[in-house]
């Protein structure tokens, strides 16, 4: 394989799933490129990626705030009504001395999902205004480090499982937060699964072309 220089490698991409080398070709707006070997999606092209990502992130943040502010599930237990919110769930772990599980939950279902949203908002605002060449780089590195550790979607499935286990105890009412969390999880899945980090790097390269020349 012959290359002009090392920067020519920018036109290649290695598949996430099967490690096959693929050449990166310009594709139509709104379409996606798949791996020649295994069919896994390599990248998409969206000319309005910044606006889409920004609007989804802000919507996600609103739902995240709602999901944390209101009761998630309520239960009538022996005549008294009990409810939980997400912060209360984590706090009760600490209160019962389960510090390790408490810290894990705090980071996996609260801090990391929130950080991903905030990083996305800052990152795409910077890219939109065309500033912060170094900061966007740092943010992108941080983003790819914490993305595998965000488990809001898994927490949502856990709530469903917990609900089934709770049927034996009493009447269950689903709170506002439950629906907000569902909306948040769907948006979070959309952001982390469909806006792939390599695409943001490609976008960054287009916005700050100077670095490529240097």
């Amino acid at each position: 394989m012959k290359l002009e220089n090392e920067d020519a490698l920018n036109h290649y991409i290695i598949c996430q799933q099967c490690y096959t080398l693929n050449e990166e070709l310009p594709i139509e707006d709104g379409s996606k490129a798949c791996c020649a070997e295994c069919g896994e999606i390599l990248y998409r092209y969206d000319s309005k990626l910044i606006d889409h990502a920004l609007s989804w992130s802000i919507t996600g943040l609103i739902f995240f705030a709602l999901a944390n502010a209101f009761p998630l599930v309520m239960i009538d237990l022996l005549g008294s009504e009990q409810f939980i919110t997400i912060p209360k769930t984590i706090a009760s772990l600490f209160a019962n001395g389960f510090y390790i599980v408490g810290f894990l939950c705090l980071f996996l279902i609260f801090i990391f999902p929130l950080m991903i949203l905030l990083i996305n908002i800052v990152l795409f605002t910077l890219l939109k205004t065309g500033r912060g060449e170094d900061l966007t780089k740092e943010l992108l590195i941080l983003l790819s480090r914490i993305t595998p550790w965000s488990m809001a979607d898994i927490f949502f499935i856990s709530i469903l499982v917990a609900l089934v286990k709770l049927i034996a105890f009493g009447q269950i009412h689903i709170g506002i937060s439950f629906w907000a969390l569902m909306a948040f999880v769907l948006i979070d899945l959309y952001i982390t699964k469909s806006i792939r980090i390599p695409e943001i790097w490609m976008l960054r390269k287009k916005i700050f072309p100077k670095e490529a020349a240097a």
């Binding site: 599930v73 239960i75 237990l77 009990q82 409810f83 939980i84 209360k88 769930t89 984590i90 009760s92 772990l93 019962n96 599980v101 894990l104 939950c105 996996l108 279902i109 595998p148 550790w149 488990m151 898994i154 927490f155 499935i157 856990s158 709530i159 499982v161 917990a162 286990k165 709770l166 105890f169």
Partner: peptide, 18 residues
């Protein structure tokens, strides 16, 4: 990450039935 389900379920149940 999906094996965390059980831990989260325990956390929810412990917080709710109290």
């Amino acid at each position: 990450p999906w094996s965390m389900i059980d831990v989260f379920v325990v956390a929810i149940l412990a917080a709710l039935i109290h």
